[in-house]
Design a protein around this nucleic acid. Structure first.
Lengths: 319, 319
DNA sequence: TTGAAAGCGGTACCAC
DNA sequence: GTGGTACCGCTTTCAA
């Protein structure tokens, strides 16, 4: 900018005025400045600008894995909203590791992002407190964080409830629940929905029909249940990875799975699912964030997005 | 930092020394500074630091769509390499729109990223020239850009050749090629590989067996071919979207598709594919980039990554 | 309408 | 070991 000013024979400030379209530059001067800018190929240094102005027009996004379709769709939605607000987004994968989440977030904060959208890997977010004090806004998506901040979730319990109820309506009375580790918020919520659906239907709760743990163990868990006397006649799978793990281990039981996935409709039979709205999750989180950034105050909000039951065949099989 | 210096009763520069672990700070002083930092919750402002140092430890990534599994895997690999080099990554989706690609890239450059990994949407990259002059490094991934820069590609022609040859070995002599618009580099390359495979096998080239265009039209194109006299007995699909489009339109011909996809093994029959290595694409591109950033000079490199034929059933069906 | 000078939060270079 | 000071590239404040 200094060079441009020199080339145009004006003061630094005049160039700044022109570049920022501020009033107070005569057409003639403007012309000269424009020419100089063109000739020198000048482009404003945003970082310097941000340093001075205090806002970086940048937000940070931490998701579990940018290559996972569910989370990357969240990311895509966040990106779209950010772009519409003139912001760029730093993105990073936590890999479900709280330490890495923390490192990423702090690295983003050191770069002075205006705000953060976080899919929390851990439950302790005290490390964020100083940053929030310093003025960065934060929104949790998909799962609540360990902090009273804006949060956007799916209706996990409600979705599981509707999926299990769907199986009950199709004549099943012994329905297995194969879910992820209950330490994961969404997994616990879905189990809660499963239990509520059974009790709402007046069916007994049977602990032997419930298995929680890592997805790769789902197939074996189901094998075991099926070998028992009075085995389950249908399965509710707690997330997409578990659904796929079951299918891959050769099982084709009457089934409703939480989470939609590509090609679920092309399998035989089509896989009935409780679909979340990942794009909605991301969009809503980002919108909440930008609302805060534009000055909105008030208590933290917690928004729950509806899920949608998609019947495709597997969930309509009778016992 | 000024505040920390005041609180610790030392000069600004001493704090800077401590924070950067530079030599020349006595243990006693270090102690005091550390205490002040802790007490004030100080964290260095990276943007200010970068402004002064000239390097931002940030790279920009432009892919077609961060929510597309193929590209997001590239993104994940880039992110991993960047993190290992202490860099953060700005990411953005071009949506296959050259204008948006340009805007993103220029926005990244305005933020003074050190380098760029670009999956080019367009073929004209003259807009990058001034930036390259200004010192940013750029690497193209998946497709070549309109510029003599480092480039990492898959062996598209070779992969298609092996896939088509696989069908020929299984007795097919009339093989349809359903590909994307040939304006897309990868699509054209794959068509080239198809043609070469036929001629290597001494089979005639028949233009009526070739259809190129948007994936959603693939099903209809195949319908038409099958209605002709002497129809094809097998299909080579030019990319993953076309493969899925064909399956979704009800076709189950002997088939090899370019691009692997989740659940290809669970369909009936399993879908044989020519698999690319998206993670390798991203990793290699990022490594090339950081090599340039650490001072490597020399002519632009062009690396081609091998593909891998994965037989799963559909490609082994006989006429 | 235009410009000079201070300062954003750091680092680099050179004295003490 | 420690401090002073210029300066990165831009915006802001105030004066001309």
């Amino acid at each position: 900018m200094k060079d441009v000013a020199a080339a145009a024979g004006v003061a630094l400030k005049t160039v700044s005025r022109f570049v920022n379209a501020e009033p107070g530059v005569s057409p003639a001067t403007a012309e000269r400045v424009a020419a100089a800018i063109e000739r020198l190929g000048y482009r404003r240094n945003e970082s310097a600008r941000m340093l001075r102005r205090g806002r970086t027009a940048t937000i940070g996004l931490v998701i579990e894995d940018v290559a996972d379709p569910f989370y990357s769709e969240i990311g895509r939605a966040v990106e779209d909203v950010a772009l519409r607000h003139g912001s760029l987004v730093f993105s990073g994968s936590s890999g479900e590791d709280p330490r890495r989440e923390r490192e990423l977030v702090l690295a983003f904060c050191a770069r002075r992002v205006d705000g953060l959208v976080i899919v929390p890997a851990g439950t302790d977010h005290d490390y964020l407190l100083p940053e929030l004090d310093a003025g960065v806004a934060a929104v949790f998506a998909d799962r609540p964080g360990g902090l009273d901040a804006d949060t956007v979730l799916s209706d996990n319990a409600g979705g599981a409830h509707s999926g299990v109820t769907h199986l009950i309506r199709h004549g099943h009375r012994r329905i297995a629940f194969l879910g992820d580790r209950t330490a994961i918020f969404t997994a616990a919520e879905r189990l809660r929905g499963y239990r509520r659906a059974l009790s709402d239907a007046g069916l007994p709760a049977d602990g032997t029909l419930i298995a929680t743990g890592p997805p790769e163990r789902a197939g074996v868990a189901l094998d075991r249940m099926l070998a028992e006397p009075d085995p389950p006649t249908a399965v509710f799978a707690g997330n997409g990875r578990i659904t796929v793990a079951l299918l891959r281990s050769g099982h084709r039981p009457p089934l409703v799975g939480f989470d939609d996935f590509e090609l679920a409709d092309l399998l035989t039979p089509g896989v009935s699912v409780v679909a979340q709205d990942p794009a909605g999750l991301g969009r809503t989180a980002a919108e909440l964030l930008f609302r805060r950034l534009s000055g909105e105050t008030g208590p933290a909000r917690r928004i729950e997005l509806a899920t949608r039951l998609v019947p495709r065949g597997s969930g309509e099989l009778r016992p």
